[in-house]
Design a protein around this nucleic acid. Structure first.
Length: 594
DNA sequence: TGCGGCTATTG
DNA sequence: CACAATAGCCGCAG
């Protein structure tokens, strides 16, 4: 599948508009204005707003197309309408894959797809000064200089059907160009496959935002209350609570020393500790933990920190803001700016362990929790093609054979492997690192190559084709030592991005495979993605079925993902899957219903 | 009001 | 206390 672009008429390449055997249609939709669907053969369907759900649903059922759209905004609108397509192509997501970075607004995606300098993309304010530059060409959405016209520039989305049809046609044009670019990417034969799974992941994000994570609100309130007391009735009440909690710590000091001490100010905490004879370079919890027995105020302080954290970040205000009708909802992103992991707001990705009992299946349902075991070292074996490391992945615990080969304990082997992937050069794993170099030279060479390239400020690409941009610019006035430390940091970042990024691609391939199969079988819905862990909310009666589906989906996704790698290898990936009532029940799973 | 530093949580 | 993320509060510069 190479990009033989035929003779072009006008400007665009005329490559066949298909991914595999997919039928491709572009869609532009606006809830108030309707939708335009444009097929690859140029035919189109215009849909009035009141018939959106009906007709879009009908196209999905009868044509089963791959839907092309500009960004996750379209996915959100469709999900909102109750339309959940099986397959899609998200121009914004593919743009980020091909070109890196975070910004993927239509004006930018369009410009870059046509080889225009993104720095010349006009901004709204500038365009206003040059109204003479209003579109005059064949397509009123495209300016004479090749950039998208004013209607696109500030998120403005024209809502009449003619404009929507133009948006869809232009989307199809960008799709063809992106598809070509992916086919031509050197040494990344899997890039087109990454593009479709990254697109589906973006759609999954829209669904996660819509569906939310099931929360037992009473339990959540109970847990928050156990840290910070009952809900304050008034603002004054709340201030009093905060004061009381502060005094609980400060009463350990003589009265005259309590004033002017702010527990929220690290410098004040240092001087507080100095008063009781404790000198510390910083006041982080792990450091204070070791001094717990030195003075009673240390334990009080740690307890205060815990409560303060719940009160400020995961307290009643957090519940009120993010939990609605029993679901915790946040904004999801399919790929962060660095290596391409999914991200989420509203605490979905950093919920403290104490709050996990509040994440619970609804009546008649269960949570199927599944996580990938040792995903990063397994991914390292796959992307580097290191035969010895690949054979270590046959073990359920791949650190065991590594430890055996190195002649060190499992713990040391683990620290060394993780250290190699993070770029650690000192500490306990440092000596074992030399052993790794001898035993797994191909894997270590892969990491070193990424490190060296990144130190030099050269951009990298993950095995799936994601561009990881590195800023190699020198800062004026930075001395040699500073510059060396910046280069080293870039090296660690680049080395890790190749692993974390590839792992994120595998994870998303798994997640969207699970999504597709759940959809077909009505066996539940994904409610959380957590880097290497999936949470599926499933009907109780399908619990064992759903658990099996999740495991089988990994094998299918991992096989497809490995076929993306030029030096195809056979790494074993493993899951740990359990059926639970509450997220916290991981240690005590439900027996599967017979 | 915006930003860097510090802190805490997660994978 | 390496790699990544979100998020709160504080002090300080503008």
């Amino acid at each position: 599948m190479s990009g033989s672009s035929g003779k072009g008429e006008g400007s665009g390449p005329t490559r066949l508009s298909q991914v595999g055997t997919d039928t491709v249609v572009a869609v532009a939709v606006d809830r108030a204005g309707g939708a335009a669907v444009v097929r690859a053969d140029g035919s189109d369907v215009l849909i009035e707003p009141q018939r959106l759900a009906l007709e879009l649903g009908e196209i999905e059922r009868t044509e089963h197309p791959r839907w092309v759209w500009w960004s996750i905004d379209t996915a959100r609108t469709l999900v909102d309408l109750g339309v959940r397509p099986a397959r899609c192509w998200d121009l914004g997501a593919v743009h980020r894959l091909l070109h890196g970075g975070w910004r993927a607004d239509p004006a930018r995606v369009w410009a870059v797809s046509r080889g225009l300098d993104p720095a010349t993309v006009p901004e709204r304010a500038r365009v206003d000064l040059f109204t003479a530059e209003e579109p005059t060409g064949d397509d009123p959405a495209v300016r004479p200089d090749g950039h998208l016209a004013i209607e696109w520039l500030d998120g403005g989305w024209a809502t009449d059907l003619d404009a929507l049809r133009r948006h869809a046609r232009l989307a199809l044009d960008v799709y063809r160009r992106q598809s070509d670019a992916l086919d031509r990417l050197p040494d990344r034969p899997g890039a087109p496959s990454t593009a479709t799974s990254e697109s589906a992941a973006e759609l999954l994000c829209a669904e996660l935002e819509h569906d939310g994570l099931p929360v037992d609100v009473d339990e959540a309130e109970r847990i928050v209350g156990s840290f910070v007391g009952p809900r304050p009735d008034t603002a004054e009440d709340e201030r009093q609570r905060i004061h009381d909690r502060d005094q609980q710590v400060l009463q350990n000091l003589p009265a005259h020393a309590r004033d002017d001490l702010d527990l929220r100010n690290p410098a004040d905490v240092k001087s507080l500790l100095r008063r009781v004879g404790i000198e510390v370079p910083d006041t982080r919890a792990w450091r204070l933990e070791q001094l717990r027995h030195e003075h009673p105020i240390v334990a009080e302080l740690l307890r205060w920190r815990r409560a303060e954290r719940i009160a400020t970040t995961f307290g009643y205000r957090w519940l009120d803001e993010h939990v609605d009708r029993g679901r915790l909802r946040g904004a999801w992103s399919g790929a962060d700016g660095a290596a391409g992991r999914m991200t989420a707001t509203a605490g979905l990705h950093n919920l403290p362990g104490e709050l996990r009992p509040a994440v619970a299946a609804e009546p008649g349902h269960v949570l199927v929790r599944s996580d990938l075991g040792q995903i990063e070292p397994r991914v390292l074996a796959a992307v580097s093609g290191d035969a010895a490391l690949v054979s270590a992945t046959r073990d359920d615990d791949m650190y065991a054979p590594v430890a055996g080969r190195l002649g060190v304990s499992r713990e040391i082997a683990k620290v060394a492997v993780l250290g190699a992937m993070y770029g650690q050069t000192t500490g306990r794993g440092a000596e074992a690192l030399r052993g790794l170099e001898r035993a797994y030279p191909t894997a270590m060479g892969f990491l070193t190559a990424a490190d060296v390239a990144a130190q030099g400020g050269r951009d990298l690409r993950t095995v799936g084709g994601r561009l990881v941009h590195l800023d190699g610019s020198r800062h004026d006035g930075a001395d040699d030592r500073t510059e060396r430390s910046r280069a080293a940091a870039r090296g660690r970042f680049g080395r890790n991005a190749m692993i974390q990024g590839a792992a994120a691609e595998l994870f998303k391939a798994w997640a969207v495979t699970v999504r597709a199969q759940l959809r077909e079988l009505g066996a539940g819905e994904i409610v959380l993605c957590l880097h290497d862990e999936l949470l599926v909310h499933a009907p109780e009666t399908r619990a064992d079925h759903t658990a099996a589906l999740v495991d089988e989906a990994l094998q299918a996704a991992a096989a497809r993902w490995q076929r993306r790698i030029a030096s195809a290898v056979d790494v074993r990936f493993v899951t740990d899957t359990a059926v639970l009532r509450r997220w916290s029940d991981a240690k005590d799973p439900l027996p599967l219903p017979r």
